[in-house]
Design a binder for these strands. Structure first.
Lengths: 201, 201
DNA sequence: GAATGTAAACTACACGGTGTAGTGTAGTGT
DNA sequence: ACACTACACTACACCGTGTAGTTTACATTC
């Protein structure tokens, strides 16, 4: 017979929220456990009762973050829309983290942690590869409809994500946002270039 | 009348070298000034006599690093060589930091610092944009020779650097090296795609 | 159904241990 | 006179723990 149990998820949740707030604004190292406790409206002891170490708290934070972000819309192939338009949707999905300053802050924090710990980085970025599979599937659908020629959909997907990441995502994560119109021009050109590489076969 | 002066550049240099060694291996935060002094074979006081703060030392380190790396070979347009070959040289120039573990370590360290300080990041990455100008000039030369059609050389250069950065550079900086053949295949495909975008006009 | 017991969850706060940026100073060598 | 060394020392920040006492909510009892 289970004796008494109390619902601790609320406190736990507020601690994670506080940690997100602090990590995002100040970075991992510059955030003390005292500060997180204060933001959470909890005693430090309670924080440690929920998470044995700061690193454990980081993992919980990052899990929630991934859960929210990786609820990425799976863009299905649509015969009605232009290819460029649909690729724009893929790019937009990847760049959505830039719109929310909290997400952006978490990206920065995570990058700072990853850069010190390649293991964690490799493990986590493997998860981000899910987006590549969706795009590869989309490419094959478009190829089946004879709207483009693709020899290696996995490779092409990698190329496209590389273009978006290197041209638009990382620069803005590291340096802060670039002017909207400039970003749009670059995005258009990236998509045009990518499609050009898929037309000749 | 010049009083007495001694050449302090040797000690200063050994301090910077020691800092490079330590920063590269352990990261900025995990490196103490005591450790740097020890590696340099100097007293901590001497370190502080040369560099008032740890941050000043970081800047000196990064300056030397940039000086070495940004001695990038300026690839001149060569009518004899294939375009793909020459773009491969540009890519290789950018990816050279991956070959030297010390440079790679410094990239990681710098990224960790940038991610906490967007101002420094923006200032420094502006310097890296020098590579874009070289490529833009090369593109115009190739266009003048009628080997490709480029409407906006600056934009196209940005696209190419984005492709190389996002597909090859950052992933390997953050996650560690990828298998050589895999990298080569991706590089070839990136270049093919980029050139495809420049042929129709 | 209200009063009451009780253990889990929580608070407040002090403390140990550690690490580190940066300084002060007296003295050595050139 | 100047660069440097050795080393003690300040000042501070932070992770994580120990503890004594308080609140909360569930279970039992009346």
């Amino acid at each position: 017979m289970p004796r008494k149990k109390r619902d601790t998820s609320e406190k736990r949740g507020s601690i994670i929220s506080a940690a997100i707030e602090a990590f995002q604004a100040e970075g991992y190292d510059n955030t003390s456990m005292d500060r997180i406790a204060e933001l959470a409206g909890a005693s430090k002891r309670t924080v440690y009762n929920h998470f044995p170490t700061k690193e454990a708290l980081f993992e919980a934070v990052f899990d929630r973050f991934l859960g929210e972000v990786m609820a990425l819309k799976r863009i299905p192939y649509d015969a009605e829309l232009s290819l460029a338009e649909q690729l724009g949707d893929f790019a937009a999905a990847k760049l959505r983290v830039l719109d929310d300053p909290v997400w952006l802050g978490l990206m920065r924090m995570a990058l700072g942690v990853f850069v010190r710990d390649p293991e964690v980085a490799r493990a986590t970025l493997a998860c981000a590869a899910a987006g590549e599979d969706h795009l590869a599937a989309w490419l094959e659908a478009a190829a089946a409809a004879d709207r483009l020629t693709v020899q290696n959909s996995k490779l092409s997907a990698e190329v496209f994500w590389g273009m978006v990441s290197g041209g638009l995502l990382w620069p803005q994560v590291v340096q802060g946002p670039m002017p909207r119109p400039e970003a749009k021009v670059l995005e258009t050109e990236l998509i045009r270039t990518f499609l050009a590489g898929l037309s000749p076969g």
